[in-house]
Simulated scan of single mutants.
Amino acid sequence: MKYAHGEYVVSRCGAIMAVQAQGPWNLECVVKFAEDYLSEREGLAGNRWGDIVFVTGESLFVPDAADALKSLVKSVMKLGLSHIAVVLGNSTVRSSTKMQLEKIYNSLGIAHVFVETNDQAVHWLESEGYLVDKRALAIHYLKSPTNPN
């Protein structure tokens, strides 16, 4: 986990970027996350990909962090990000998190879904045509003390 007022783990799993994030998040954390996310996604250059974002804890953004996340999503949409599945199962502030992310995603016009479990997220992304490397995803989840499996 990377820490800067908020924690996260990010990995590439096939045509999916997997993110485990525990909030709340400030601008410093989102900026560092953006650097790590962009570095991990380099292997997807020229291809479209989806995200699975598993949020835990008090999964909220302060306003400047939300703006930074919106800028990140907008920039990576130009590189190929086209679908985001957000797993809310372990968020302690689910409806607030959903409202905050829904506002960002709707303003950008990116396809997204909010689900309760990892399996639901994987199923939705596979139904949208993505290849999810489930072995890499399982390894990704072992990197975090907030392992959802």
Score class of each variant (00 low, 15 high):
132 V>F: 09
51 D>K: 03
54 F>V: 12
63 P>Q: 12
149 N>A: 11
53 V>P: 07
106 N>A: 06
139 I>W: 12
124 W>N: 06
119 D>H: 05
143 K>A: 15
116 E>P: 02
84 I>R: 00
104 I>K: 02
88 L>R: 08
137 L>F: 15
122 V>D: 03
119 D>E: 11
16 I>W: 05
89 G>Q: 07
30 V>D: 01
126 E>H: 11
47 N>H: 10
37 Y>H: 15
3 Y>R: 06
34 A>N: 03
80 G>D: 02
53 V>F: 02
121 A>R: 07
53 V>K: 00
49 W>G: 04
138 A>Y: 11
100 Q>G: 11
48 R>E: 05
77 M>Y: 07
13 C>R: 09
56 T>C: 12
54 F>D: 14
128 E>Q: 14
134 K>P: 13
148 P>N: 12
108 L>S: 01
23 G>L: 02
91 S>T: 05
124 W>Y: 10
50 G>P: 01
76 V>W: 10
74 K>Y: 07
145 P>V: 09
89 G>S: 07
93 V>Y: 09
30 V>E: 09
105 Y>D: 02
92 T>S: 02
147 N>V: 03
80 G>I: 03
57 G>R: 07
104 I>L: 11
57 G>T: 05
100 Q>E: 13
91 S>N: 07
130 Y>H: 11
114 F>Y: 15
16 I>L: 12
32 K>S: 13
81 L>Y: 01
107 S>Y: 01
7 E>P: 00
4 A>M: 10
78 K>V: 04
9 V>W: 06
78 K>R: 13
123 H>W: 03
120 Q>M: 08
11 S>T: 10
31 V>A: 14
4 A>C: 12
94 R>G: 15
46 G>T: 08
39 S>E: 15
60 L>T: 09
148 P>K: 14
25 W>Q: 01
51 D>N: 06
137 L>K: 14
69 L>W: 02
64 D>R: 09
149 N>V: 12
32 K>A: 14
127 S>R: 13
33 F>G: 02
27 L>Y: 03
21 A>I: 01
131 L>S: 12
57 G>F: 08
109 G>D: 03
40 E>L: 06
116 E>W: 10
57 G>P: 00
61 F>L: 11
10 V>H: 03
41 R>C: 09
60 L>C: 04
94 R>W: 06
96 S>V: 09
78 K>D: 04
76 V>I: 15
49 W>I: 01
84 I>L: 09
39 S>L: 11
29 C>V: 04
136 A>G: 14
40 E>I: 13
37 Y>T: 07
4 A>W: 05
9 V>Y: 04
9 V>H: 03
105 Y>T: 00
106 N>Q: 08
97 T>N: 10
21 A>P: 06
51 D>H: 03
78 K>E: 11
82 S>Y: 01
7 E>H: 06
52 I>E: 15
111 A>E: 12
